[in-house]
């Protein structure tokens, strides 16, 4: 038990160190770790992401708590969340007194100049991975086995158009609309 709690703590500590640019930047790291460790399948992880987006509290904390709880109950939730919080906590306390010196340091500026675009590329690729998984139930590496179904594409087209037209739409509505469409299309039509 203790070794699992320790692994949760270390895994989320690592994720906390390398999350640059808000909660969505955490998704690629979490996906990789959680799938590699066989803690969750990709589709179940996406369910957890959906719930974490639609409940109160910062996404990063919600998803860490959720995965920790799923692995090891309430103690797991606490260890995972403590792990993801600790790097920011330590870094902020170190730089709080000399933030301007930190922010204009040429290594910091250069590092961020490179990290920001690379993270955008990484998130794009995770978006593609999630789309392939959720629409066609396949991964990039076996793309030739595609089982094409128009009906699932309808959900994508409608929801994507909705987010493009109504740009400020809250994630909760996206989760609700796509959930209702899923229930109707998979439950009644397919």
């Amino acid at each position: 038990m203790f070794s699992l709690l320790w692994e949760l703590f270390i895994t989320f500590f690592k994720i906390g160190i390398f999350t640059f640019g808000g909660g969505y930047a955490m998704i690629p790291l979490i996906t990789e770790e959680v799938v590699a460790k066989n803690w969750l399948e990709t589709s179940r992880l996406i369910d957890f992401i959906a719930i974490s987006e639609s409940t109160p509290g910062p996404f990063a904390i919600n998803i860490s708590t959720f995965i920790g709880y799923n692995q090891a109950g309430i103690l797991g939730a606490i260890f995972a969340t403590f792990g993801v919080v600790l790097p920011s906590f330590i870094i902020i306390i170190i730089i709080a007194k000399a933030f301007h010196k930190f922010a204009t340091n040429k290594f910091v500026v250069g590092f961020l100049r490179g990290v920001k675009p690379v993270v955008v590329g990484v998130i794009f690729s995770v978006a593609i991975t999630f789309l392939l998984k959720s629409i066609f139930d396949l991964s990039v590496l076996d793309i030739l086995n595609v089982d094409f179904r128009w009906s699932t594409l309808i959900i994508f087209a409608v929801v994507f158009a909705m987010t493009r037209i109504w740009k400020k739409i809250h994630p909760i509505f996206i989760v609700l609309v796509s959930g209702i469409m899923g229930l109707i299309i998979y439950g009644l039509i397919l």
Binding site: A50, K133, S134, I135, V159, T163, G182
Partner: peptide, 8 residues
């Protein structure tokens, strides 16, 4: 359905 929403 929600998984498609999350991917979006």
């Amino acid at each position: 359905g929600i998984r498609i929403g999350v991917a979006i």
